[in-house]
Simulated assay, not measured.
Amino acid sequence: MGDVAERTTPTRRTRPGPVLLAVAVILVAFNLRPAITSVGPVLDQVRAAFAATAGWVGLLTTVPVLCLAAAGAVAPRLSRRVGLRGAIVVALAAITAGLVLRVLGGPTLMIAATVVATSGVAVAGVLVPVVVRAGFPTRVGLITGLYTAALQAGATVGFALTPLLAAALGGWRAALAGWAVLGAVALAGWLACGRPAIPAAGPARDDDRPSLLRSPLAWTVTAFFGLQAFVAFAVMNWLPLALMDRGVSRTDAGLLLGLLSIVALPVSLLVPPLAGRARGQSGWILALSACGAAGLLGFLVVPTAGPVQALPWVLLVGLGMSVFSLALTVIALRASSAERTADLSGMAQGIGYVIAGTGPFLIGLLHDTTGGWTVPFAVLLAVVVAQAVTGTLAGRPRAL
């Protein structure tokens, strides 16, 4: 494929414009959640069509978390082998192909194709921060904010539009396959960038730098990422049920969950650019963590009998969950190079999503054991406190 820069300047090769690369990053980000969030609204229809067991449903919903965790080890190695651009092309192709394949057969093919699609999601999720660090070294906060906002918008759109697509297109298969169009658009956008002057995500020799596994800072960043993801996964899975148990209708609980996601969008757009220009990010992390803690504390101590009473606490929890954008910003800023960003992103997301995957299980177990939500919310509050501590440490101006 010819280089875009070669066509615009016949005498020399130039880098793709920063605007084009930023648009490509946003398109990639928008594709990193619909593959996951689009299934939930039609899961009952999928299960009925396949006459699937509860075990199959559990496996289908667990596969994305497992893939997100495994990508931490796979993505940097893939990038070293085929280059950063090539690795993201492979990831986008996997997302697009997996989304189509998962509706073409039965339950076994759907599981296998979900592995393909969410593996692409996971690999791209690890490597996009490397693109941000290498392609926009002086605008890490701004581009991370745009990337995070696009990712969260994709998650919300995937959840909200899938039922409408199913009704308009004649069923869940067409609705789920329709999200492959976004993958194809993102792939075209990424290919349009030509060969951006971004290094492969890895050094020429593995012994050039000490292992991040021996770095206290790397473990601090990883703990911060994992703890905030633990809270997010648990809240997204269990907050609607907790609200319904307290008198909120199913419809209102769904609306509040959507609001929780939407409130993070402006924060993701505004805070990372400001935090990225600051010497450290600890203050921002602490402030957003305090919002999340206040929301969980409100659920613990204030009676909630309807959506109006729950609204302030949902908004605060949503603000707290927007610390995800700062977790990605910290990954890019604490690394001294694009190669180091790939290593740190792989470690933080790989191990972090293992931590996060235990969140829904643990909170559900505590709810079943205690028969209420006091202990689960108290545990989440304790995790947010730990998140604030590790995030404050990770936000200090140091570099690996």
Results as ranks from 00 to 15, higher is better:
residue 4 V to M: 14
residue 7 R to Y: 08
residue 8 T to Q: 14
residue 8 T to A: 15
residue 13 R to K: 10
residue 14 T to H: 10
residue 21 L to V: 05
residue 21 L to K: 08
residue 25 V to I: 11
residue 30 F to A: 15
residue 31 N to D: 11
residue 37 T to I: 12
residue 37 T to L: 07
residue 41 P to N: 05
residue 43 L to G: 03
residue 51 A to T: 13
residue 65 V to L: 14
residue 66 L to F: 12
residue 66 L to C: 00
residue 69 A to G: 12
residue 69 A to T: 05
residue 72 G to P: 04
residue 76 P to Q: 09
residue 82 V to Y: 03
residue 86 G to V: 10
residue 87 A to S: 13
residue 87 A to V: 05
residue 88 I to D: 09
residue 89 V to Q: 09
residue 92 L to G: 10
residue 104 L to E: 11
residue 108 T to A: 12
residue 114 T to A: 02
residue 116 V to S: 02
residue 123 V to R: 06
residue 138 T to E: 15
residue 143 I to L: 07
residue 145 G to V: 00
residue 149 A to T: 09
residue 151 L to N: 11
residue 153 A to L: 15
residue 153 A to Y: 02
residue 154 G to V: 03
residue 160 A to N: 11
residue 162 T to R: 04
residue 166 A to T: 07
residue 166 A to F: 11
residue 171 G to Y: 03
residue 180 A to S: 15
residue 182 L to C: 13
residue 183 G to Y: 06
residue 192 A to P: 06
residue 200 A to I: 05
residue 203 P to G: 07
residue 204 A to D: 15
residue 213 L to D: 03
residue 216 P to Y: 10
residue 220 T to Y: 03
residue 221 V to F: 08
residue 234 A to F: 04
residue 235 V to A: 07
residue 241 L to A: 15
residue 245 D to Y: 10
residue 247 G to S: 10
residue 249 S to M: 03
residue 249 S to K: 09
residue 257 L to G: 00
residue 257 L to W: 02
residue 259 L to V: 15
residue 265 L to W: 08
residue 268 S to I: 05
residue 274 L to M: 14
residue 279 R to C: 12
residue 285 I to T: 06
residue 285 I to V: 13
residue 286 L to R: 04
residue 286 L to N: 09
residue 287 A to S: 06
residue 297 L to A: 14
residue 302 V to R: 08
residue 304 T to A: 01
residue 305 A to E: 13
residue 305 A to Q: 11
residue 309 Q to P: 13
residue 309 Q to H: 12
residue 311 L to H: 02
residue 319 L to W: 01
residue 320 G to S: 07
residue 325 S to K: 01
residue 332 A to C: 02
residue 333 L to E: 10
residue 340 R to Y: 01
residue 340 R to P: 10
residue 341 T to I: 00
residue 345 S to D: 12
residue 350 G to C: 05
residue 368 D to R: 12
residue 371 G to I: 00
residue 374 T to R: 13
residue 375 V to Y: 06
residue 375 V to H: 03
residue 388 A to M: 10
residue 392 T to R: 15
residue 400 L to R: 11
